[in-house]
Amino acid sequence: MTEVERRHRRVQRVVAIVYVGIPVVLLAIVAWVSSRGSAAAWIGCVVPVAMLGLGLFLLPKHRYQPRWWAGVGGLFGVVTGLFATLFPLVIGVWWPAVLALPAAIVGLLAGLLLARRANLALLVPVVPELAESPYELTFQLRGTPLATVLLGADSVEIRSSPAARGDEQSRRYPLSAITGTFEASLSGAERLKFPIALSAVGTPGPAVILQASGDDWVLPTNQAAILIELLDRRRTTI
């Protein structure tokens, strides 16, 4: 078994916990509470069952897209924390409701930490063999806290934030439109031009010069060398 295959197994176990495991935990809690109340209390199972259905629906779509894992994990964690503490009110048990806010925070953190664990299992350290995997690979742009370069199986995308929408905040190029990639070293004094609306603080360090669709972009990232290698590998396979 190769290193990438081992990573894939570890990552998918954690992703399955996020998308399926969290709803199953909530379903077990709600079922246990419902069993101590009237028959009408079982209607509460609709919420975790709906979460489970949503998780099973999204899992095949998001399996190789790490950008979604934190959002889904955080959402499912918050809902689980809130519902698990508020649902006992239907059987007259009120004290868990006092813990609703702390439970929501704990659920949020748990979901985010699980997503981060999956990301770390996939990307630490980044190896060239990941180019042959179906995963989207995310690289942070230096000098701006949220901007990233997203390397997909057949495209590369520059995003101003994880929730970026529209041409002003996100620019996507098919890999077939990439005509050149070069590594450069920046002093930090350069005035950089980006393909999206983005304000970045000039910082010294490595960068990627990306030539695409007749344009040249300078993308400052501390992982310039490995990003170029992954880009070039994926370009040769399309």
Results as ranks from 00 to 15, higher is better:
Ala70Leu: 15
Val47Asn: 04
Asn119Trp: 13
Gly92Asp: 05
Ala50Glu: 04
Val93Gln: 07
Ala28His: 07
Ser38Met: 10
Leu113Gly: 08
Val25Ile: 14
Lys61Val: 14
Thr80Trp: 04
Gly53Thr: 14
Val93Lys: 07
Arg63Val: 05
Ala103Tyr: 03
Pro48Ala: 14
Gly92Lys: 04
Leu58Arg: 00
Leu89Met: 09
Gly73Phe: 08
Leu56Met: 15
Leu109Lys: 03
Val72Ala: 09
Pro96Leu: 09
Val47Trp: 07
Val24Tyr: 02
Asn119Thr: 12
Ala40Cys: 06
Ala50Lys: 12
Gly21Asp: 05
Ala28Ile: 12
Val49Ser: 12
Gly92Val: 09
Leu82Lys: 06
Gly74Ile: 04
Val30Thr: 13
Trp69Thr: 07
Ala121Phe: 14
Leu109Asn: 05
Val106Arg: 00
Val93Ala: 09
Pro66Glu: 07
Ala84Cys: 08
Ala28Arg: 06
Leu108Gly: 10
Leu113Pro: 01
Leu108Asn: 08
Ala110Lys: 10
Val47Asp: 03
Ile91Pro: 01
Trp42Lys: 09
Ala84Trp: 01
Gly53Phe: 13
Val79Asn: 03
Gly107His: 09
Val106Ser: 02
Val24Arg: 01
Ala50Arg: 11
Arg117Leu: 14
Ile91Tyr: 01
Pro88Tyr: 04
Ala70Ile: 15
Met51Glu: 05
Gly111Glu: 01
Val25His: 04
Gly55Tyr: 04
